[in-house]
Design a binder for these strands. Sequence first.
DNA 1: ATTTACAGGACCTCATTGGTCCCCTATGGT
DNA 2: ACCATAGGGGACCAATGAGGTCCTGTAAAT
Lengths: 158, 158
Amino acid sequence: MIRMSKLTDYGIVLLAELGSQHDAAPHNARELSLRTHLPLPVVSKLLKALAREGVLLSHRGVKGGYSLSRRPEEISVAEVIRVLEGPIALTECGTHPGLCAQEQLCQVRTPWQRINEVIRDALSQVTLAELIAPTPGSRGGPPGDSFVPLDRVARSSN
Amino acid sequence: MIRMSKLTDYGIVLLAELGSQHDAAPHNARELSLRTHLPLPVVSKLLKALAREGVLLSHRGVKGGYSLSRRPEEISVAEVIRVLEGPIALTECGTHPGLCAQEQLCQVRTPWQRINEVIRDALSQVTLAELIAPTPGSRGGPPGDSFVPLDRVARSSN
DNA sequence: ATTTACAGGACCTCATTGGTCCCCTATGGT
DNA sequence: ACCATAGGGGACCAATGAGGTCCTGTAAAT
């Protein structure tokens, strides 16, 4: 199936959680684990990776934790995916040219590159801010009826 | 990584090969294997699956083989992917709602549904015809410089 | 100094993928 | 009628990568 890894999905959930209350204070892994109901080791691993790649800022020691390195509007879903699972492409030749033995005589290579671009593009258009629930800081708004902008994405979907 | 399976990729290559010469005559697995340089068992497996799902028509016996069930313009990449690897969605909750324990309190579910839609949509817009090399029936046009319409896809990008 | 919390890995298990093989059935030619 | 061809439907297996845990080190605050 075409699917991003669960880890990446969790990573986005974590970022959304962090972004939904952008007080300056850092939040530690344990707290985020409790709030998202994700296992602590997983949360820890993801936060570390996100910090290493510059999406999060980390603060060590007592009262330490993680905070977003930028405003939610400035962090795209594409970036998060790229950081957590590498370049976005449906086909191998989109990320590792030269590995596929068929590459030389493949008739469909070029169009696939475009398709990959389109998907990359769609994901670049969606920012963390747009993923954050409508009522920032509070929980459990009207279910299934949240207001979500996603303007640019919605537009391309004809 | 976000990636469709190689099998699916191969399937699309096979369909493109079949589509690039739409004589009525069926082409058998061996022939397609030779032409695409893909291993015969793989080719065979894929063709069987595609026939079972109605993308291809099969003819048994001597002089048998496979042919497209519709014109290349009427077969979308999304359909092929769906047939070969199931519903298109980046997140599990997009295809199997109820399985994810986080679903009830997940803040980012709704926007993901939209993102999935966008990707589905982009892939639905691309037909087999658009994947087929510019000079139908002939091989080896100017490399890396093929004309490919992909209008609708290109439009949505940016 | 001690406690808290991040940093960086090693490590393990399991599901899925990529790929092969085999036996069966249908069809066309001789 | 017979036989070669070609698809139909699986079972099966190895390898890869994902999901998840744990351990040891280091920085910061009190």
